[in-house]
Design a protein around this nucleic acid. Sequence first.
DNA 1: TCGAAAAGTTAGCCTTGGCTAAACTACTTG
DNA 2: CAAGTAGTTTAGCCAAGGCTAACTTTTCGA
Lengths: 159, 159
Amino acid sequence: MTDFPEDSSAARPGIPDALPPCEQHSQQYAAVRDAHETELVEDYVELIGDLLTHQGEARSTDIAMRMGVSQATVAKMVRRLNNQGLVISKPYRSLFLTDAGKAMAEESRLRHGIVLNFLRSLGVSDRTARIDAEGMEHHVSKETLDIMQRFIDGWARRS
Amino acid sequence: MTDFPEDSSAARPGIPDALPPCEQHSQQYAAVRDAHETELVEDYVELIGDLLTHQGEARSTDIAMRMGVSQATVAKMVRRLNNQGLVISKPYRSLFLTDAGKAMAEESRLRHGIVLNFLRSLGVSDRTARIDAEGMEHHVSKETLDIMQRFIDGWARRS
DNA sequence: TCGAAAAGTTAGCCTTGGCTAAACTACTTG
DNA sequence: CAAGTAGTTTAGCCAAGGCTAACTTTTCGA
Ligand SMILES: [Mn+2]
Ligand SMILES: [Mn+2]
Ligand SMILES: [Mn+2]
Ligand SMILES: [Mn+2]
């Protein structure tokens, strides 16, 4: 079908992929480092949004339980989220999201849901799909996400 | 088709996913933290293997260029890889892989290739597929990887 | 209502993975 | 074969993201 005529290092049967040009190659790793910088923040904000939706409040002890991390670790991260204007926290009270936080939470929730449902529609078990999606979601570009969404739609229509 | 009867929090049309049980949820994040611990090591070892294959030698200056990172950073990582018994390095000489290193390189290369070709076969452009695969590869379970491989096979037969 | 348990905070420690600067070794070329 | 350039190593700095321990505040039940 497609044969990637624009890229001489693309896959051809039997021929192992050559190394991509240096500059492109380093951009791949840079993109991963970038994703990892924002990843934790996205997961916290998404989780806070989910807790607010499903339990009505987001307490740091619940976050610590869900994240599998100490309360001290949560406290430190919450200060960061506060400084970044994503979360509103008053001492000894539950957390809330700023408008920016709500936007990030919603965007993350949507993206996470697409990746999760894409894996499910491929036939991956729910348990595994959840584990894989938790990490994969942060490394999926807009282009890939759109393709996943279309794939889910096609699968839903067909089933 | 499948309706995930075994999991009440699985996707149903219109109903937003509930939060998974606490213990399962924390395992998701733990799996991501685990993946990130081994991720860099895997990328270095895979890259060293690729350089040995495609250029005949793996010099730390080339690694630094490809990774988009300073030579000092590479030197520090190489010492770690040495201590972990993955790489053989003699002062001021190119690097080689131990048997354990070769095994890890090969496993990573295969996994990376499956994820990359899976994205390509979905219709993702080569450039984007390479970027996304570089991060996704570390978050793909055996179960998902097998499904991706079968998907590629089906696509290859069909095209 | 008051005292204990739960929740939240703070301080200080550690490892990882970046960086720059400076010193050292190896390679290349006139 | 002697510079000079390219490659490598080491030292020391920093931020992120974990942890434990000790403390403070809030919540709850007898
Ligand atoms: Mn995630
Ligand atoms: Mn790889
Ligand atoms: Mn990678
Ligand atoms: Mn990742």
